[in-house]
Design a protein around this nucleic acid. Structure first.
Ligand code: FES
Ligand code: FES
Lengths: 144, 144
DNA sequence: ATGATGTTGACCGGAATAGTCGTGAATTAC
DNA sequence: GTAATTCACGACTATTCCGGTCAACATCAT
C-alpha cells in the first residue's frame, strides 16, 4: 500500500527537518544519509515542492528546505501528496455520499477514518525527534 | 490495497452464507447475483477451498458451501487468504522483532494492529445480515 | 563564462492485476 | 454405459503500475 515513494519521501523530509536548520540541504546529501537513489529522489522532491511543502533554490550552495515549520507538516499531508489517496478500497476514495455499497464497506470506512486521524496527528517534528532518538540508541548499542 | 480478489471473494462468501442453507450453490449463480466474472470466480473459489473455508462438490446439483458456520469465519481470515498479507508497509510483514525501523514505522504498526483487530471482529454472519438489510432497503426505496 | 545545482519529461524493464480459455476429472441422471 | 452437468487446474494474455535511470535544460553564485 505504501511504496518507496512514501517511505523515501518521508525520510527526505525528516532529513530536512533534522539538518535543515541553517540553509538548504542538497539532494546528494539527503540521498546519502537516507539511502535513497538520488535520481529517484528528484521526482519526490519535485512533487513535494509542487505541493508547497518544500522550497528549493538552485545554483551553488542551493538545495531544499522545509517551506513551513516542521510542526505544521503532518504525516498525512506528506503521504497523500506522494502516494495519492490512501484509501484501502477504491470505493472509499472520495464521494462520501454512499454510492455502491457492498457489505464490507462500513468496516473499511471505519478503518480508513481512524488511519487518517492517526496520520494527521503526527508531525514532521515528532518524526524527527523520534529519529534523533533512534540514531542515539543505535550509536549507543554499537559503543557497548 | 484491497483489489478485486478480496472484494469479489468476500461477496462470494456472503452469497454462500445467504443462499447456501440447503445444499451447495453453483458458481454461475454466485457470479450472476454478485456481478463477478464467472471464469475469474473460479480462481477465488479454488483459493478459498484450498484454505479450507469452503467445500465443493462436482457433478449435477453440485456447487460450493461454507465449510464452517458463518459465525466462525472472520473477514480477516478471508482477506488474508485472498490478498496475502494486508500490511500497509513491507517492513511490517511478519518478523515483529524490530528489524530496520525507520521513523514512521511505529505509527503504521499501530494502524495495522488496529485494522486487524477490527477485521477479526467481523464475521461472515455479520456481513450477511448487513447485506440482507441493505437489499431490503434498496427494495423499499424502489417501491416508494 | 563556468560550473554547481535543481527541473523536467521521456523512457524502460519487471512485476503484479485482472482476467480468459481449454482441457480434464468427478458425479449424477438416464 | 453414456451423456450432461458441474467443478478443477493450469496455461496464456493484456494492461497497468512501480521503481528507477537518463539526458537535456534552467538557474544561480562567483
Ligand atoms: S465494493 Fe467497496 S467494499 Fe465492496
Ligand atoms: S522502512 Fe518501514 S516505515 Fe520506513
Amino acid at each position: 500500500m505504501i511504496g518507496t515513494k512514501g517511505d523515501y519521501g518521508v525520510r527526505a523530509l525528516i532529513d530536512l527537518a533534522m539538518y535543515g536548520g541553517d540553509g538548504p540541504v542538497q539532494r546528494a546529501e539527503i540521498a546519502r544519509r537516507q539511502h535513497v537513489p538520488e535520481a529517484y529522489l528528484d521526482h519526490l522532491l519535485a512533487q513535494l515542492r509542487r505541493a508547497g511543502l518544500i522550497r528549493s533554490t538552485r545554483g551553488p550552495s542551493g538545495g531544499h528546505e522545509l517551506a513551513r515549520d516542521a510542526k505544521e507538516i503532518t504525516l498525512l499531508q506528506v503521504l497523500e501528496t506522494l502516494e495519492g489517496s490512501l484509501a484501502p478500497l477504491p470505493c472509499l476514495e472520495d464521494h462520501d455520499g454512499e454510492g455502491t455499497v457492498c457489505a464490507q464497506q462500513w468496516v473499511w470506512r471505519e478503518i480508513y477514518d481512524d488511519m487518517r486521524v492517526r496520520l494527521g496527528a503526527v508531525s514532521l517534528q515528532n518524526l524527527a525527534d523520534r529519529e534523533r532518538e533512534r540514531l542515539l540508541q543505535t550509536a549507543l548499542s554499537y559503543s557497548i
